[in-house]
C-alpha cells in the first residue's frame, strides 16, 4: 500500500463553534480510512466574511495567520467548499501586490482540499462503508459546485451509502440565499431565495437534506425549523460517518 500522507484539519468557524459534530464526523470517516489526522487548535476564521464584504485588509490579516499556521501541512482538508474556495482562489488575489506572500498563498491553496474532493479525487474512496437508511436530498452549494467544480465527488460518495435513497430536488444547484453577510444585510432577498429552496426540498419528501457547506445548511435549517418542518439537516460527513 502506498503511503497516505497525514492530513491537517481546517475547520470552518461555523462548524467549530456551532456544529462541532460535523468535524467529529469528518474525523471519524478519516480515521476509519486509517488516515492520520492533526488539527492546529489555534486556527480561527479564514477571513471570508470580511473578504466578501470588501474589507480586504481585514481578510489579509486572517490570510496571513492561516498561511503561517498551515504552511507546513502536507494536505489540508476542510468540510466546507466555500472556505476552500477562499483559500485556493481569493488568498492569492489578496496578495496581488506582494509576490512573496502570493507565492506562499498559492502553495497553501494548492494543497487545500474540500472533504469530498479529498476522499474521491485524492484517496479514490467513493465507498467509505457508510450505511444510512433514510430518504435524502442533496443541495449543491454554489462555491463548491461553481467555483471549485466539485459536484461529481459528493454525489459519488452519496451513491455508495448503503440503504440510503437519494431523491434529487428541483434546481439542486440553485443558490439557497445564504451568501454570508448578505443573509443578514439583505435578509428580505435572502429569505425569498431560501423559501424557493425550502419548497424544493419539501417537495422531494426527503427526511434529510445534506450538502458540503454548513453555511448553506445552517440557512436552510433556519427556515425549516421556523416553519416546523420535520426535515433534518446533516452535513455529508455526518452521513458518511453513519454505520
Amino acid at each position: 500500500m502506498k503511503h497516505t500522507p497525514p492530513v491537517t484539519l481546517f475547520v470552518q468557524c461555523i462548524i467549530d463553534t456551532i456544529y462541532p459534530d460535523v468535524a467529529e464526523a469528518m474525523v471519524k470517516v478519516l480515521e476509519d480510512l486509517n488516515i492520520q489526522v492533526s488539527c492546529p487548535t489555534s486556527q480561527t476564521c479564514c477571513g471570508q466574511p470580511a473578504f466578501n464584504s470588501g474589507h480586504r485588509q481585514v481578510a489579509k490579516a486572517a490570510a496571513c495567520k492561516f498561511i503561517d499556521l498551515f504552511e507546513e501541512a502536507e494536505i489540508i482538508i476542510s468540510p466546507s467548499g466555500s472556505c476552500v474556495n477562499m483559500v485556493r482562489h481569493h488568498y492569492p488575489e489578496l496578495f496581488a501586490d506582494d509576490p512573496e506572500m502570493q507565492k506562499r498563498a498559492i502553495k497553501v491553496g494548492a494543497k487545500t482540499y474540500e472533504f469530498t474532493q479529498y476522499l474521491v479525487d485524492v484517496l479514490q474512496a467513493e465507498d467509505v462503508g457508510a450505511r444510512f437508511a433514510r430518504k435524502v436530498t442533496y443541495h449543491a452549494s454554489c462555491h463548491l459546485n461553481r467555483f471549485l467544480g466539485v459536484d461529481r465527488q459528493p454525489r459519488a460518495l452519496l451513491s455508495h451509502i448503503r440503504e440510503m435513497e437519494l431523491i434529487e430536488m428541483k434546481d439542486a444547484d440553485r443558490c439557497c440565499g445564504f451568501g454570508g453577510t448578505f443573509a443578514v444585510k439583505y435578509s428580505d432577498i435572502s429569505e425569498a431565495i431560501l423559501k424557493e429552496k425550502v419548497d424544493n426540498i419539501l417537495q422531494t419528501g426527503a427526511e434529510v437534506v445534506t450538502g458540503c457547506d454548513m453555511g448553506c445548511l445552517m440557512n436552510i435549517q433556519g427556515m425549516l425549523s421556523r416553519i416546523n418542518a420535520s426535515v433534518e439537516v446533516k452535513h455529508i460527513a455526518q452521513l458518511l460517518a453513519e454505520r
Binding site: 435578509s187 428580505d188 423559501k195 435549517q221 433556519g222 427556515m223 421556523r226
Partner: peptide, 12 residues
C-alpha cells in the same frame, strides 16, 4: 435580519 423568517442554531 437573519431571524425574521429563520431560526438559528445556538453556539455549541
Amino acid at each position: 435580519g437573519w431571524t425574521s423568517q429563520r431560526n438559528m442554531q445556538p453556539l455549541a
